[in-house]
Amino acid sequence: MLKQRLAAGETVVGTWLRIPHPTVIEVLAKSGLDFIHVDMEHGPIGIESMDRLLLAAKGSRIPAVVRVPGLDATGIGSALDLGAAGVIVPRINRIEETVQAVRAARYYPCGERGVAGDCRANGYGTEDFAAYAAESNRNTLLALQIESKEAVEQLDGMLEAGDAVDLFFIGPADLSQSLGIPCRFDHPLLLDTIRQIAGKVRSTGKAVGIHAPTAELAREFFGMGVQYVTVSFDIGFLSTGAKEWMKKLNG
């Protein structure tokens, strides 16, 4: 499982999915990617299409982590009830938001996730709830996004409050904007800030993740000890492939 691979020190690579069609997941699952982020923050994916996408991920045997639109307990719980391998919560900036995310994503004694009863995640009620809740707490990936100057300043407290958080994921685009250097991904200030975040997160024994805008930056992030990296996204792969074909045909 994804969470156990991170705990074992493995490096994993995934991508983002914004096209709300199950076939896209089925195709990407054949590419060698380790996981897929189903992106509900940006793009047209809603709860009904997420349901179908998670079914496709399950059938394709690839972990699907849902980026929920925000810090909402109902949205977090719905994604997990439908069988997501985990959730990634965007724009976490403060200690109290870290606590809220944990409370929404974990069952007792770690949190207060809503008890759905019969749902996909617990075999539609065929599993003993206590055993299922313990397994969910143990295996569900909870990732929080660090993507602002405020979050960097609050990181020590967030790490202390986020004992039940598995992964702190850096969003370099929004972070660069917050630092006053929007989308200048090779800027020394951004790279130094990423290195600082990675060092602090790793010192607590937790995994650190990031989106890599280029393959070169991905390799640089690996060198910083980043284990969990996303590259491109479904639309980017589609666009790049089409452009490469046209370049070959017109060359």
Rank of each mutant, 00 (worst) to 15 (best):
G251Y: 11
L28M: 14
L175S: 00
L53S: 04
L80G: 01
G46F: 07
H211N: 12
P172W: 05
V66R: 05
I181T: 02
F168A: 03
D39F: 09
G209V: 07
K206E: 02
K149D: 15
I88M: 13
R195E: 14
R5V: 09
A143S: 05
F168T: 06
D34S: 12
A130K: 09
V226P: 02
D234P: 07
E112Y: 05
S78G: 03
A198S: 15
D234I: 11
P22Y: 12
I235W: 13
L28F: 10
T98S: 10
D34T: 12
C110M: 09
G83E: 10
P69V: 15
P172F: 01
K58I: 12
R184H: 14
G157H: 00
Y108F: 12
D39N: 15
F129D: 04
V229F: 08
D34H: 13
A164Y: 09
E96R: 15
P109W: 06
S49V: 10
V201Y: 02
T98W: 04
I88F: 03
P182L: 04
A105Y: 01
C119T: 12
Q196P: 03
R113K: 06
T98D: 04
M50V: 05
L33R: 06
Y107N: 00
E160M: 09
T11E: 13
E153N: 14
P69Q: 07
G225N: 11
S148E: 00
P213C: 02
P22W: 01
S148M: 06
R184D: 09
T193C: 06
G46W: 13
P188M: 08
A218P: 01
E96W: 09
T126I: 14
D72Q: 00
E147V: 08
V231F: 10
D118K: 13
I47Y: 15
P44T: 06
A134S: 08
G114C: 03
E127W: 14
K247L: 13
L28H: 04
V87W: 03
M1E: 08
V102T: 09
H211L: 13
A56Y: 07
C183I: 13
A133D: 03
L249A: 14
F233A: 01
E41P: 07
A29P: 03
N122Q: 05
E220M: 07
G236W: 07
P188C: 14
G43I: 02
F168D: 01
R61V: 11
I19H: 08
L179I: 06
V89N: 00
P20W: 05
G9A: 08
D72L: 10
H37V: 15
L54C: 09
L33V: 13
V65M: 12
V152Q: 04
I146D: 00
K200F: 11
K3R: 11
A164E: 04
A242F: 15
L191P: 00
D34L: 12
A85P: 07
I36T: 04
